[in-house]
Design a protein around this nucleic acid. Sequence first.
DNA 1: TTTGCTGCAAACATTTTGCATCGAT
DNA 2: ATCGATGCAAAATGTTTGCAGCAAA
Lengths: 154, 154
Amino acid sequence: MEQDAIRKRFEEFLRGRSLKLTSQRERIFERAFDTLEHFTAETLYTWMREVPGARVSRATVYRTLNLLEEGGFVTSMNNGLGDIVYEHVLGHEHHDHLVCLECGRIDEFQNTEIEALQLEVARRMGYELESHILRLEGRCAACQAKQAGTGSRR
Amino acid sequence: MEQDAIRKRFEEFLRGRSLKLTSQRERIFERAFDTLEHFTAETLYTWMREVPGARVSRATVYRTLNLLEEGGFVTSMNNGLGDIVYEHVLGHEHHDHLVCLECGRIDEFQNTEIEALQLEVARRMGYELESHILRLEGRCAACQAKQAGTGSRR
DNA sequence: TTTGCTGCAAACATTTTGCATCGAT
DNA sequence: ATCGATGCAAAATGTTTGCAGCAAA
């Protein structure tokens, strides 16, 4: 668990921008890093409300998520259903996604060959590559099995 | 120009779903295919309003864009700034995108090696691949040149 | 003539913002 | 004490929907 290290980086980030470490920011940060799931702003807000006594307003959740994204502590992406979902970067140095269009499952993978080819494409087109988004969409093994069982394919 | 062919396919698509070919749908379709740019629903609505006399409501623009997407006549993607942008499929059988984070320029490319590797990754993860989104982000040649001229890099 | 379509405005869902108050530094 | 943060509610966006009248087929 390098949770402590990243927590420290967050505090430094705030200090560096002369922002304050409030109890709300602390709690939001903790909660966001306490999950392995991808979540929406609204989901995170709901999670925060579940903790008795400790209230955080919706506005603060949104403001803090933006902050966390600016600081590179979380990244956001589209889940294919129109929602913006977040994930924290802990233990996620770099990866791409495989999403199941049937059940919404999201898997992660890495492939250095693809990365190398991307660099080459960018160079050939005159671009200086900064980042990329690769997202493979299809049906996961479970959903394929489920459908095969019904007797009708596709 | 295979504009006629695709126009015919659109009419068949409507007929096949017992939908009607109204003047609004015709005009929206024409306008969407009349551009090489990527556009948002709101932009398309603005374009439609510029034509004097012929009014189309915002609701109809949204409804028709959804229709066009269902029919595979346009595809949508996120432009990285949170907007959903559309592009028509004419002359766009398949391609991925390179976007410049500085000026918003969008280029297109194809790379069969990357495609092959994607298939393999999906198979290895037990997925049946249906589609993918690959988007390389960085700085285009023009923006690099612009910045180099200022004397300060990065 | 039937059935689906359109425009409108209201409804929604999500996110941002203004402002007075509160709290970390 | 300062200066930024918070909560709230209002506002701003972007998109969908109900409905009465309109127009393809």
